[in-house]
Design a protein around this nucleic acid. Structure first.
Lengths: 117, 117
DNA sequence: ACAAGTACCTACCCCAAAGTAAGTAGCAAT
DNA sequence: ATTGCTACTTACTTTGGGGTAGGTACTTGT
């Protein structure tokens, strides 16, 4: 899963800021390239893994799963697997994830305003 | 200023998403480590370079200036220099930068809620 | 028998972002 | 004279996020 090293100056700086700045904390949870995009997609309801892939064509499978796992670990999304064949795995926002909605819509709204729709 | 290369697969992917996803666009403007922190600091009013340094101890001078320049280039902050000795350079949010306030406060609010104040 | 679809996992590599550390110019105070 | 303050600049190194490309297990359709 491409482990994150704990001991490094770069991480130390991040962690220091996460404590001090609320914005840093949020960025550590939903920052990066793909996380906000995935969350934005999940805002419109639960989605299967393959659906997410289809709706975010540019993402590689590695990135998708990697970030879905991180989002799970951070309790922002919930994974539900039905053991069937073919397997049906769906992801949806957790309650905490749902609470991000105003944040993401505020971001999206500003984005639309700047790009002219 | 550590130039950004235009031609690369990574950038191509980013640019593709910026067009498609409003959230990606916003992340390209205010994403990364330091930009949101800097903007959050400037929300409380204009600040001198040295004040920003003091209020964000973990940032290196290189990072501070680099991001301040990018924020200027993106019309999010305005730089004002009084030629005096010692020089007085202050940075403040532009009108567009001010329009980010609801976004940043939404982020900060969520951050506070998650970390328990 | 084999291709196709599901939901992953893994090893390897690249490069841009971030860190480190030093230097610059101009002036003012000790 | 040298230290210190301001607001930067520059060269070099590191790191980790992301890309590429393969493999897995299990089943259904042809």
């Amino acid at each position: 899963m491409t482990q994150v090293k704990e001991n490094s100056t770069q991480n130390a700086n991040k962690i220091a800021n996460i404590g001090a700045c609320p914005v840093s904390y949020v960025m550590s949870k939903i920052g990066g390239h793909w996380k906000p995009i995935i969350l934005y997609q999940l805002m419109s309801g639960p989605k299967r893994y393959s659906e997410l892939k289809r709706e975010i064509p540019a993402v590689t499978e590695k990135m998708l799963i990697q970030h879905l796992k991180q989002l799970q670990a951070d309790n922002l999304v919930v994974r539900t697997a039905e053991q069937a064949m073919p397997p049906i795995v769906s992801y949806k926002l957790s309650d905490v994830g749902e609470s991000l909605t105003p944040v993401l819509t505020a971001i999206a709204k500003w984005g639309f305003a700047q790009t002219g729709r």
